[in-house]
Nucleic acid binder design. Structure first.
Lengths: 337, 337
DNA sequence: CACGGCTGTCGAAGCGCTTCGACAGGCTAT
DNA sequence: ATAGCCTGTCGAAGCGCTTCGACAGCCGTG
């Protein structure tokens, strides 16, 4: 293992000079700098992370806490995680992966040990138990997702309330009066996951404003669950012509079942999905959808966090505006016979 | 920030004693140990990770390199990653997340800087450019996946060759003579991803041994791609009655298209999938499948790595045996009319 | 021409922890 | 009783880096 001292000796300068070449925190003459850089390359020197962290109290690591559960939105999570990792690297940070399993303890452990300089939390619940810790500690953090109380926190998320409103508006414009919402699994609502509740809120509020009837049904993914859910929907609201789906695992089953029941999309029934682009374009009917901008969310989260670490930036809630792309799954409501 | 020294003072012992209480590397009397532990709790002490790493040359971090691409098997990747993270924690390790983007440089960086004690690599190609580095360096590592040459490497993977053979055998036993393989996207084969090629090899070899005709077609996911692929398959081999699918994004499109063409599953056509359990059980037809044991792979990889870090264990290739579960998508080949 | 002010470099003092050797005191074996 | 051996504790020496203050040499200025 090559050390700073060895590089210094090889270049004929002192250790501190090498350090300053590396950090750029003091000016170094061009000739010296070149000599040092040459030595670094020749010896294949890599600064020791531990020593660095100890001396500077900066680890250059960002902790990313991902949900342990895999009951929803897995590809979105993955995409966010990858975007975070890539974004972090461009700012010179590495990512420490924490699973939600440890919960608040993980926050304590990371903060206390100086393992990471900052944290990004995903899968935030409305009243998340990790939040008090985050507020107390002086460690910078960013949430991907929106809790009930954002006081003193920095959050990045899609504006799910606006997303819900947008879906309803689109269907209303097409003349649909009875709308069914196929949501995430019941468990997701039970633990008060922010995005699910906020979407629902947006849907309901706008539906009320526009005088539409709205029926919300949580749904586990898969064909059997979807079949049961769908039966109950049409049972309760036979005139339903518009669907909003926020559940990746329910999209394809819904389309298949509608087809099977002889309900044509979009002639008889319109479907709007809240899902990643890929799901929308690869489904058996190209779906009118509001995309979940996973990459953008990951990137923005890192940017916010780096700004904080650099002393710029402040607590702020960044809500990305939803965009609805019209594809082949939505059209005018059928005229009553 | 509380330090070891402060704990020592509070407990009325020397710093080294506290250190030994923490590490258990020397025997400490019960009374002293209790006093120290009490102080640790009272002061809320957390050892500083950097200092620890510097002094012990052990970071207690395992680097996990995941693929940057999201063109395949995303949920599997995620599941593995989570299993790795959880498994690592039970052994006292944290996970540093590296994306494939940096490639070999990431290996150099992590090894050189002592950021991590060991690495786990995913998405291994047959002739992966990171392998030479791994062999040279003395840093312990485990691959999830199997390269062409495993000399001096530790690998964990599903036995995809046996998986391929198993699928063919199942179909052969049911009387199918013409089998089509719907594979991953062409790009996956082009970069010589181990699992894809090995599955294909297993399929082909066993098919030849059993005298079956086998047609392999890569396929991007989605309906359009699958429709084109399927058309070509039946064009070329009209008597095809058995399908093996190794592509999550093609499973549902295949089933839908077959249905649409009036080919009943399993009466006219049998389908065997290589995919996670969840996909198999949630598809529109419950699929006969060989599961990809993602969690098991993650867990085993960590175990192998920890064994190496503890000086136990050696280079070894762990191939998990595939298990085929018969469900509703496969049955006897139709009798020729 | 002497002075203050730059610029570029160095030496040394830690950062908080692990670990090695030392050793006091009590034990067992002769 | 003595030698030798554990057991439990301590002190000190680093681990490799950052950073602060010091200062040598040089410039331009009054």
């Amino acid at each position: 293992m090559v050390t700073l001292a060895e590089v210094a000796q090889h270049a004929g300068v002192s250790a501190s000079t090498v350090s300053y070449v590396l950090s750029g925190k003091r000016s170094i003459s061009t000739t010296t700098r070149q000599r040092v850089e040459e030595s670094i390359r020749k010896l294949g020197y890599h600064p020791n992370a531990g020593a660095r962290a100890l001396a500077s109290s900066r680890s250059n690591i960002i902790a990313l806490m991902i949900p342990l559960r895999t009951d929803m939105y897995v590809p979105v999570m993955m995409e966010i995680a990858i975007a975070v990792a890539a974004g972090a690297r461009t700012h010179g940070y590495d990512i420490l992966l924490l699973t939600g399993e440890e919960g608040p303890d993980a926050v304590r452990r990371v903060t206390g040990s100086g393992l990471a300089d900052a944290m990004i939390l995903m899968d935030v619940e409305l009243d998340d138990e990790r939040l008090p810790l985050l507020r107390d500690t002086h460690q910078p953090s960013v949430l991907i997702g929106l809790p009930a109380d954002t006081e003193g926190l920095t959050c990045v998320d899609l504006d799910f309330r606006a997303t819900g409103a947008l879906c309803v508006e689109h269907l209303a414009q097409l003349g649909h009066r009875d709308i069914a919402v196929i949501g995430e699994a019941a468990a997701v609502y039970e633990r008060h996951t922010g995005f699910a509740e906020r979407t629902l809120d947006g849907l309901r509020t706008r539906a009320r404003e526009l005088g539409l009837r709205l029926l919300h049904r949580p749904c586990e993914g898969g064909y059997d669950a979807m079949a049961a859910t769908l039966a109950r929907v049409f049972d309760e609201r036979p005139d339903t012509t518009g669907f909003v789906v926020q559940n990746e695992a329910a999209v394809e089953p819904l389309l298949a079942l509608l087809r099977q029941q002889g309900r044509a999309v979009p002639e008889d029934v319109s479907v709007v999905a809240v899902c990643p682009e890929q799901v929308a374009t690869q489904a058996s009917v190209r779906l009118t959808s509001v995309a979940v901008p996973a990459q953008e969310m990951g990137r923005r989260a890192v940017e916010q966090l780096v700004a904080k670490l650099d002393g710029r930036g402040s607590d702020e809630v960044v809500l990305l505006s939803p965009e609805l792309t019209v594809r082949a799954s939505s059209g005018p409501a059928p005229v009553a016979p």
